[in-house]
């Protein structure tokens, strides 16, 4: 299965551990990712807050480049996913916007007819590879490991754009379960907790840090009190917030969280018995804890 890959800026930088685990795991799952050549930043929240048409235009450049390859565009970043998908939907829904985007793209020697399908890599792994295949590939059942799935907000929201519950969409916007099933396929236990799609406040982290950290604190507290050994994420921004800022959260709120926050591809990698180094696990700010290691060794 071949896809056009849109990494986004984060996995090329602070989320390099996500990329490492994607590189390690996808070939084993039969997924081939071909990076979209010369892709540009999708713009996300920041750009949309400043200029609407320009924000859609830079995002549409990626969709136009991808359209030439006639394959789905796949991204590991929830923010990019939402922006690209929203651009597609608005392109279809607003004729006036479509016309102007067409003119803007033309100025850059490109055109777009609206046919690129946007997907998150979780969706590809859950639906195209499928649970059965993954369960069959598991070499090391992660028995006894309590994993809290953190979907974050943006991945599950595109529903409202009228995209409906087709196979392009991840899941239910309020109570998604695809990652839950994936966790169970690795033999681990999926922790039930209420914050799995609560926003972590990433877009405020630069500007209203205390508020963002409060949101992170609530998510960490909920996962911990429900017995999670670790949290699993699907977005570089969520991971950064919950992992790298965890010690700062502890300092600010007097908490003592010590919860590793790993990517779902790292979790799959562990179950497929890939070495920790290859999966980028050494780059976590909050290291794997002793109980977690013991469970992994015993598995």
């Amino acid at each position: 299965m071949k896809y056009t890959y849109y990494p986004g800026c984060s996995v090329k930088a602070t989320a390099n551990l996500y990329q490492e685990s994607i590189d390690s795991v996808t070939p084993l799952l039969g997924i081939e990712l071909e990076e979209l050549e010369d892709w540009n930043c999708c713009g996300a929240t920041a750009y949309m807050s400043v200029r609407e048409l320009m924000s859609f235009a830079i995002s549409a450049r990626n969709l136009a480049l991808a359209e030439k390859h006639h394959r789905d565009i796949v991204t590991p970043c929830s923010a990019c996913y939402l922006v690209l998908k929203k651009t597609n939907q608005y392109f279809a829904d607003y004729p006036n916007l479509r016309k102007k985007l067409g003119q803007a793209l033309e100025a850059g020697g490109l055109s777009y007819s609206g046919n690129t399908r946007v997907r998150h890599i979780l969706n590809v792994i859950v639906n195209d590879v499928g649970m059965e295949k993954i369960a069959g590939l598991v070499k090391k059942k992660l028995k006894g490991l309590n994993v809290a799935p953190y979907y974050g907000c943006q991945i599950v929201r595109p529903h409202y754009y009228g995209c409906g519950a087709d196979e392009e969409n991840i899941d239910d916007p309020d109570n998604p379960v695809s990652m839950d099933r994936l966790i169970e396929a690795t033999g681990a236990t999926c922790v039930k907790y209420s914050m799995k799609t609560k926003c972590c406040g990433s877009s405020l982290m630069g500007t209203e840090e205390k508020q963002a950290m409060k949101l992170c604190m609530e998510i960490l507290a909920d996962a911990e009190s429900n017995g999670a050994h670790c949290i699993v994420t699907i977005c570089p921004l969520c991971q950064m917030n919950l992992d790298v800022y965890q010690s700062k959260v502890n300092r600010l709120f007097g908490t003592k969280f010590n919860i590793p926050v790993i990517y779902f591809t790292q979790l799959i990698g562990l179950a497929l018995d890939r070495p920790a180094k290859e999966l980028g696990l050494g780059r976590l700010a909050v290291k794997m804890t002793r109980p977690m290691k013991q469970i992994l060794q015993g598995a």
């Binding site: 090329k12 540009n40 200029r51 830079i58 803007a104 033309e106």
Partner: peptide, 22 residues
């Protein structure tokens, strides 16, 4: 820094979009 190759094309797209508004 990570720069794309088609910076001129991207700027042309942005310029055009800037000149229009919704």
């Amino acid at each position: 820094r990570n720069r794309i190759k088609a910076r001129n094309e991207l700027r042309a797209i942005i310029r055009k979009a800037k000149s229009e508004s919704l």
